[in-house]
Amino acid sequence: MNTRTSLAVILLALCFHGSLCFLPAGFAGFQRHACRSSSMRSAAARRVTIMSDKEDFLNRDIGGFTQKQRFREEIESPFRKIRLFLFPAAAASAALGAFIAGTRLLAISTGVTGYDFDQTLQNFGIDVLGATGFALLYWNDLNARDRDLVRIARSGKLSTLTLKIVSETGREASLPMKAFRKQRRIAIIAGGKDVVQVAREMARAGAEDLTKVGAIVLPLQLDQVGELDPAEVEGLRRAVGVPEAAEGKEEADSESLLPCLAAPLFVEKWKDWIQDEQKRAVDQGLDLKNGITIYVERSGYIKKRSAGIPSWRTLAEDTKARNRPYGMPEFF
C-alpha cells in the first residue's frame, strides 16, 4: 500500500511538473512582452518628463530674460561672469586702500607723526584711480551684458515669427524663422509699397543665383512711410539690377513666391517686432522712404543693417562669402 501510494504521488508530481512546463511556455513570453512594454512606457514617460522639465527650466524668466537667453549670452562671452566678479572685488579693495590712506592723511593733517605725507598721498591717489577705473570697467561690462541680452531676446522673438515660402520643388510651406537657422541667410527689406515691390522684382531677377547661395529676400511693407515718385522707382530698379518691368507684369507677380522670395505671415507681429529697427534707423538719420535692409545670418543673429535695397548680385556675393560651417547648441 505504501509502494502504490508512493508511485501515485510520483506520477501526480510528474504530471503536475509537465503541466507547469507546458503552460508557462506561452505565459512566460506574454509576461516578458508585458514587462518590456511596461519598461518602454516608463522610459518614454521619463523622457517626456525630463524634456518638459528642461523646457520649463530654459524658459524660466529671470530678471526679464529667460534662462535660455542667459545661457546664450554666456556662450558668447564666457569670461564675462569672471570679470563681473573680479572688477567689483578689485574696486572694493582699492576703495578700502583709499579709505585707509585717507584716514592717514587726515591724521597727518592733525599733527600725528609716523607717516610719510608724500608716500601716503601717492597711495591715496593710486587707490582712488584704481577704484574708479575698476568701477567703470564693471559698469561698461554690465551694460554690454544687458545690450547682448536685449539683442538675444530680440533674436529669440524674431525666431518665432512665421513666413511663407516655396521650396525648390514648388511646394508652398509656412515656417518659423528658426527653421532656417544654419541653412539660409535672410534679408528683410522693409519700406513703403514701392520699396517692397522693387525688392520682389530684385529677388526674381536674381532668383537663380540667390537660390544657389541660400539667400532669401523677405519684403515687409511699413505703415506711414512716404512713397517714391516714378523717377525714383525706376532709378531704384536700375540700381538693384532689375530690368524695366513689363506692363501688367508687376501686378501679376506681386504675390508669387520663390525659393529665394518669401512673404511674412501674421504681418502685425512682424510690424511690432520691427518698430525698434525703425527707431534706430530714424535715430541714425536714415530715410525710411528708401527702405532699410536687415540681414539675419544663419546663426539667427542680426549682424548687419543698411539703408536702401541691395542689388541681387551684391546680396548673392555677400551671402556666398558668409557661407561657412556653423554650429550652435541644440537648445537654441
Score class of each variant (00 low, 15 high):
37 S>Q: 13
93 S>K: 08
93 S>I: 09
129 L>N: 04
68 K>A: 07
58 L>P: 11
88 P>S: 06
116 D>M: 06
96 L>H: 09
90 A>V: 14
155 S>T: 02
37 S>V: 12
50 I>H: 14
73 E>C: 12
106 L>E: 02
120 T>S: 01
133 G>Q: 06
50 I>T: 15
152 I>S: 06
87 F>R: 12
151 R>S: 09
51 M>F: 04
107 A>P: 01
50 I>S: 15
126 I>N: 09
47 R>A: 12
147 R>A: 06
69 Q>K: 02
150 V>K: 05
84 L>A: 07
54 K>I: 10
157 K>R: 15
149 L>S: 03
79 F>Q: 13
66 T>M: 04
159 S>G: 09
119 Q>P: 00
129 L>S: 07
65 F>C: 09
100 I>T: 07
116 D>T: 06
50 I>P: 02
117 F>S: 03
139 W>Q: 14
87 F>V: 08
44 A>T: 15
154 R>E: 01
146 D>R: 12
149 L>G: 04
49 T>E: 11
140 N>K: 11
93 S>R: 10
114 G>D: 01
63 G>R: 07
65 F>V: 12
56 D>S: 13
91 A>C: 03
41 R>V: 10
52 S>F: 04
137 L>N: 01
144 A>L: 10
88 P>K: 09
81 K>N: 08
111 G>K: 01
147 R>W: 02
107 A>K: 07
50 I>Y: 12
157 K>N: 13
112 V>Y: 04
70 R>S: 01
155 S>C: 06
139 W>E: 13
45 A>P: 06
163 L>R: 03
112 V>G: 00
161 L>K: 10
155 S>Q: 06
142 L>Q: 07
140 N>M: 08
112 V>D: 01
106 L>Q: 05
110 T>G: 00
80 R>Y: 00
149 L>Y: 01
50 I>C: 13
44 A>D: 13
61 D>T: 15
147 R>V: 06
119 Q>I: 12
127 D>E: 06
121 L>W: 14
68 K>N: 06
137 L>A: 05
121 L>D: 05
136 L>M: 07
46 R>Q: 14
109 S>H: 02
49 T>D: 10
51 M>E: 03
124 F>K: 12
109 S>F: 00
78 P>E: 05
49 T>C: 09
59 N>F: 14
148 D>L: 13
63 G>T: 04
138 Y>Q: 08
37 S>W: 07
51 M>H: 01
112 V>R: 07
71 F>Y: 12
64 G>E: 03
145 R>K: 09
139 W>C: 08
133 G>W: 09
161 L>D: 05
103 T>L: 13
